[in-house]
Simulated scan of single mutants.
Amino acid sequence: MRKPFLRLGGLMALLAVALGAFGSHGLKNAVDAASVNTFEIGVRYQFYHAFALLSVGLLLYWRKNKLLTAAGWLFIAGIVLFSGSLYLLAISELFSLNTSVLGPVTPVGGVAFIAGWACFILATFQKNEKSYRRKGSEEG
């Protein structure tokens, strides 16, 4: 799972840069300041968790365990649910979107982020299921 998390982390960071540029340049004159702020919060949390995904992918080279993998999937779910719902809320007035269903989605994404960080922390207490280190190196 390390390569998919590295690839997805890179993709999420790339999209955060593109969405951030769109939000600060394209949305500024199209929606109100509160909507731009909402969009920027989505970008910020996407960026934080893109770096978290990259960290998970790198850690999986040395420390493979199920909680670390769960953390990666929870970070992805959080990006989609939390940041994605904020993006839709921010642009809803442009496209006359019905956002009533998004109210409960944003907090679920936030809970996914929190659960991902909890799994990340707990993974540091687990023994490796499989180590990618060379034989003879010390366990950490």
Rank of each mutant, 00 (worst) to 15 (best):
C119E: 01
A71C: 13
A71I: 12
L53R: 05
A16S: 11
G84P: 05
T38F: 05
N128G: 09
R63N: 09
T106D: 03
G20E: 03
R133T: 10
S131L: 08
Y61I: 13
L81V: 04
I114R: 08
L86W: 07
R63M: 14
F47L: 14
T106W: 01
N128E: 14
T69Q: 08
G116C: 06
N98L: 00
S85G: 07
Y48L: 06
K66D: 13
L122K: 05
W117P: 07
P107A: 10
Y45K: 15
S55G: 11
M12T: 08
P107C: 11
A112P: 00
T69F: 09
F75I: 05
L89S: 07
L89Y: 01
A16G: 06
M1L: 04
F125A: 10
A71W: 08
S83H: 12
F51P: 06
E40S: 07
S55W: 10
L6W: 01
T38W: 00
L81G: 02
L68G: 10
L122S: 09
G136A: 12
G9D: 03
F51R: 07
G116Y: 08
I79K: 01
Y45R: 15
T99C: 02
G103M: 07
P4M: 15
L27D: 03
A90R: 00
L60V: 11
K135W: 10
V111F: 12
R7I: 12
S137I: 12
E138T: 14
L19T: 03
E138V: 09
G57R: 04
L11C: 11
I41G: 13
L81H: 01
L54I: 15
